[in-house]
């Protein structure tokens, strides 16, 4: 019950910040652009997708049109993921450091709530706000594509959950550094650096880091690290595959669940040990 109060409080806190309105504004602009740009035409040879009234695909059957629409939606979702990383992390990274600031943390921890509850309340509150932003964009685009192209792709709607899950995994890393440093800038930088310098290179290690050495121990360490940390790029590309109706592995999601849980547990332990 107290966690629910904390989640509601965090949603309200983030609603008071401009960053997330910027994200919602960008989503709205993209939706408007999509509503104006995307359409479908019927020709004697089949249906075509149009972009600003111009034919953007050869005439295809209804089945192929669904494939094309899926790829279009996957492209949008990829763009959305970038938006989440940039604006979502920027907009929410301050939540934990703010809660741990002198004068605020005293108010929270003098109440009958455990520190792990405070951490989870703030964490899930941030994730909930990002989910609302994602569902707004994905839901809007799903409606636009459905109404204008006539393709109702349920998998695209499901991707809202997957993208939120990907963000939640990344946000566990941001939370960890937020607890450790109590500094928003460090939490943001650490989250972005994790994505660029750890998760990305580890995901594509066979084409990159493996080439540095053929040593088995070295490659074993890389593999170990890959399985310890949340697999953000693998999950993102899996989501794109699912939207496009292609096969995607479940392993990165399961493994990232364990990793993120571990990172949150470690964050809660560090928080438990802190003096304020």
């Amino acid at each position: 019950m107290k966690i629910i109060t904390l989640i509601r409080g965090t949603i309200r806190e983030l609603a008071a910040k401009a960053t997330l309105y910027v994200l919602a504004g960008i989503s709205t602009l993209m939706l408007l652009a999509a509503a104006l740009a995307v359409g479908a035409d019927s020709t004697p040879d089949g249906k075509t997708i149009t972009f600003f009234g111009k034919q953007a695909s050869p005439p295809v059957t209804n089945e192929m049109l669904a494939d094309l629409a899926g790829k279009l939606e996957a492209g949008f979702a990829g763009g959305l993921f970038l938006g989440i990383v940039v604006f979502g992390v920027f907009g929410t990274a301050g939540v934990i450091p703010d809660a741990l600031e002198k004068g605020t943390v005293d108010l929270y921890l003098s109440k009958p709530i455990a520190r792990w509850q405070l951490l989870l309340g703030k964490y899930f509150g941030s994730v909930a706000v990002i989910f609302l932003n994602i569902i707004y964009f994905i839901g809007g685009l799903w409606l636009i594509v459905g109404l204008k192209v006539g393709v109702w792709n349920g998998r695209f709607l499901l991707s809202a959950l997957l993208l939120t899950y990907v963000f939640a995994s990344l946000y566990s890393v941001v939370t960890f550094f937020g607890v450790l440093s109590r500094n928003m800038a460090i939490a943001i930088i650490a989250g972005i650096l994790y994505l660029l310098l750890v998760a990305g290179p580890l995901d594509s290690r066979q084409a990159g880091l493996y080439l540095i050495s053929e040593n088995g121990i070295y490659r074993g360490i890389l593999d170990g690290l890959f399985y310890i940390f949340p697999q953000i790029p693998a999950m993102e590309s899996g989501a794109m595959h699912i939207i496009a109706g292609e096969h995607a592995e479940a392993a990165p999601y399961a493994q990232s669940f364990l990793s993120s849980g571990g990172i949150l547990a470690l964050s809660a332990w560090i928080l438990h040990k802190k003096d304020f």
Partner: peptide
């Protein structure tokens, strides 16, 4: 003891309310 804080009120110095 977390539960004992149900019986306690605290006004910290330099408190920061949202």
């Amino acid at each position: 003891d977390v539960r004992v804080r149900e019986k306690v009120g605290y006004l910290p110095e330099n408190h920061r309310y949202p």
